[in-house]
Structures are given as structure tokens and as C-alpha cells.
């Protein structure tokens, strides 16, 4: 009897261990790009925090706005000071889930097309976002890639008329992250 209980607990723990497939990165990359005939603005952040749970399909991102690096120092200053107001809203956050995560077999290397859906919070405003992307199993790691568009207007980021020609209405955002498996007990 006792042995059976212990065995059950061990089995259930093992199952949970297999099921909790949590992956994490602190060096994800997010690049955004604004293109108008007047000016091209590009910024990249190499210190994106993200976690992915392949047992539930849940995915989260936490992006420190001050870590975006621009080509021009003045752009970076304006981005933080005037547009996203990094002092007030230090992080952008995404909480969502991967649709179709069940098809991913982490024991086999390969690339999977998935969709990601969730809530994106920038500048204190939250919007629903849905985008296509890929997840790739490679060498025990998960590589994520997605491109989507963000409208500053949707996040309460106003662009003054004086620079309306320099900043695109929709900003292209590219996400690249390489997740390492979390070691769990």
C-alpha cells in the first residue's frame, strides 16, 4: 500500500517534471523600425526578458524601455523622454499564449509555425495583439521569431505634428529569442 502511494507520487512528480517545460531568456532581441521618406529610425534591445512554458503554451515578455539603443543619441533621449516616458512606464509587458504549442515535439529538432495571442502593454496602455511566428527546437533550446506591427497611437503615444513626417504610423517590431531550458526540481 505504502509502496504504491510512494510510487504514485514519484510518477506524478515525474510527469509534472516532464510537463513543466519552462524556458527562459534574458538576452532576447527586440528590434523596431520606423520608415518614412524623411527619416529611418531603428532601435534594438538585446536584454529582453522572456519566459515560455511549453506545457501550457504560455509566453511572457518583459522589456526594459531604457535598454533600447538607437543610432542617434538624440533619438534615444527623445524616445525615453518624450514618447514612451520611461521614467513613468519603465517596462513594456506581453502576456500571451502560443496557439498550436501542442504540436511541438521538443525531443525532435524542427521548426514549427505558431500563432501568438495576448495582451501587450506599452506606455501604460494595453491592447490585444495576435501575430504569426515560428518556434524552433534546436540543440535543446527553443528559438522564437515573430514580426508584428504596433501603432504608437494605440498606446497613447502622441506624435506632434512637427515630426509627423519623420515617424511612421505603424512601427514594425521584430522579436528574436533563444530560450534555455529552466532547471527545475
Amino acid at each position: 500500500m505504502k509502496i504504491r502511494i510512494i510510487a504514485l507520487i514519484i510518477i506524478s512528480m515525474t510527469i509534472q517534471g516532464i510537463m513543466a517545460q519552462k524556458y527562459m531568456t534574458k538576452t532576447g532581441k527586440i528590434r523596431f523600425y520606423s520608415d518614412t521618406p524623411m527619416e529611418k529610425i531603428e532601435a534594438v534591445n538585446h536584454q529582453v526578458n522572456s519566459a515560455l512554458d511549453l506545457s501550457t503554451g504560455q509566453i511572457v515578455f518583459k522589456v526594459l524601455m531604457k535598454s533600447f539603443e538607437f543610432e542617434k543619441a538624440l533619438m534615444q533621449e527623445h524616445f525615453n523622454e518624450n514618447y514612451v516616458e520611461s521614467d513613468k512606464f519603465p517596462n513594456a509587458v506581453f502576456k500571451g499564449s502560443v496557439i498550436g504549442f501542442q504540436t511541438i515535439d521538443i525531443t525532435k529538432e524542427g521548426k514549427y509555425k505558431v500563432e501568438v495571442e495576448g495582451d501587450l502593454t506599452i506606455h501604460g496602455k494595453t491592447n490585444k495583439v495576435k501575430t504569426a511566428g515560428t518556434l524552433e527546437v534546436k540543440g535543446g533550446k527553443i528559438l522564437a521569431h515573430a514580426i508584428f506591427e504596433v501603432k504608437p497611437k494605440d498606446y497613447g503615444i502622441s506624435i506632434p505634428t512637427a515630426v509627423v513626417k519623420q515617424i511612421a504610423e505603424t512601427i514594425e517590431v521584430t522579436v528574436d529569442a533563444t530560450y534555455d531550458k529552466m532547471n527545475q526540481l
Binding site: M24, N49, S50, A51, D53, T56, K62, P90, V93
Partner: peptide, 18 residues
């Protein structure tokens, strides 16, 4: 575990201020 998974994941990320 399912219900709190997202917040769990979020907490895992911690507060990574420079």
C-alpha cells in the same frame, strides 16, 4: 498551477533593472 502559470512565468523574469 495552470491558473497562475502566466504570473509564475512573469515572476520568474524578476525585476531586471540595470
Amino acid at each position: 498551477q495552470g491558473v497562475s502559470a502566466q504570473d509564475d512565468l512573469m515572476n520568474m523574469l524578476g525585476d531586471d533593472k540595470p
